[in-house]
Computed example of a mutant assay.
Amino acid sequence: MNSKARYYIDKLELQKHPEGGFYREIYRAGEMFFTETIPAKKLNKKNISTSIYFLLTGRDKSLFHRLKSDEIWHFYDGCDVKIYIIDNDGNLSEVQLGRSREVFQFVIPKNSWFAAELTDKSSFALVGCTVSPGFDFKDFELADRNKLLKKYPEHEKLIKQFTKH
């Protein structure tokens, strides 16, 4: 593992993330609001915003997943991160977050499937992720390979690369 990545993992007290990489929540807004679920018409209490540190190192990947809220990625240190996004219509887009493209923030729209990897497998990347309305694991969905392949067969190679068997 890259020594600077190890430094950040220790210094920031990061832990393994279910989608890959390491993370730690650093902010959860105290302000709450209510959202209505459909079709249940049930009120859910949500934090207005949350933020985490997120670190990928070496061959770590952020596997395809989606959230019910927009997520802003902020680049802090390391090599560039390539983010792959599949929207609801099956359109694939790629964003390179980092110094080389001078894209330091990027918004991933809610309900989009997305995954990420490092552009340099011998390096690491430290980013921040801000979610609004705030993140809740019940709003997190890790992609099921077979379901995603059935829905978006044109992206088979990428889906197989960024999902579990």
Rank of each mutant, 00 (worst) to 15 (best):
S122M: 13
Y23L: 07
R99N: 14
N111Y: 11
D80V: 08
S51Q: 07
A125D: 00
L142M: 14
F135K: 03
D70G: 06
T37D: 14
D80A: 12
P109H: 10
M1S: 10
L56Y: 01
D120K: 12
F33K: 13
W113F: 11
E94I: 10
L148H: 07
A116P: 10
S112M: 10
T119N: 03
F106I: 14
P153F: 09
L126M: 02
F140E: 06
I159E: 02
C79Y: 05
H165T: 05
L63C: 03
P153W: 09
L118I: 01
E19M: 03
Y53G: 03
V107F: 02
N111V: 09
G58A: 08
V81H: 01
A143L: 02
K45N: 14
K46I: 10
C79I: 07
E31I: 11
S123Y: 01
L12D: 01
D139C: 11
Q96D: 10
L118K: 02
S112V: 10
D87S: 08
F75T: 06
C79Q: 06
N111G: 03
D10F: 00
T57S: 13
G90I: 10
K157T: 14
F34Y: 14
C79E: 10
D10P: 00
V131E: 08
R24Q: 12
L118P: 07
F137Y: 15
K82L: 11
Y53D: 05
N111E: 15
S112C: 15
K45I: 12
H155Y: 09
I48H: 04
L148G: 02
K16D: 11
C79P: 04
L158F: 07
D87A: 07
K4C: 05
T37M: 15
Q105K: 11
E31W: 01
G78L: 02
D70F: 08
K16M: 06
G128L: 02
K138G: 08
F135G: 04
E94Y: 10
K147D: 12
C129W: 08
I72W: 02
K46Y: 06
P39F: 13
Q15N: 00
V81G: 04
E31R: 09
C79H: 07
K110A: 15
P18D: 03
V95H: 09
G58Q: 03
F114P: 03
Y8Q: 01
D120L: 08
K164V: 09
L56A: 01
G134Q: 04
E25Y: 03
Q161R: 07
V131I: 13
I9K: 04
N91C: 12
N146A: 14
G20N: 01
S132L: 02
Y152K: 08
K138E: 14
D10E: 13
I26V: 12
F162Y: 09
P109T: 10
G78W: 06
G78S: 06
L43P: 12
H165L: 09
S49M: 12
S100D: 14
N146H: 12
E141Y: 11
Q15Y: 00
Y23V: 05
S100R: 11
I48W: 00
F34C: 11
L142S: 12
A29D: 13
H155A: 04
I85V: 15
W113N: 03
I108H: 05
K61D: 05
V81R: 01
T37N: 14
S3M: 06
V95F: 11
E71Q: 09
G134E: 05
F140Q: 07
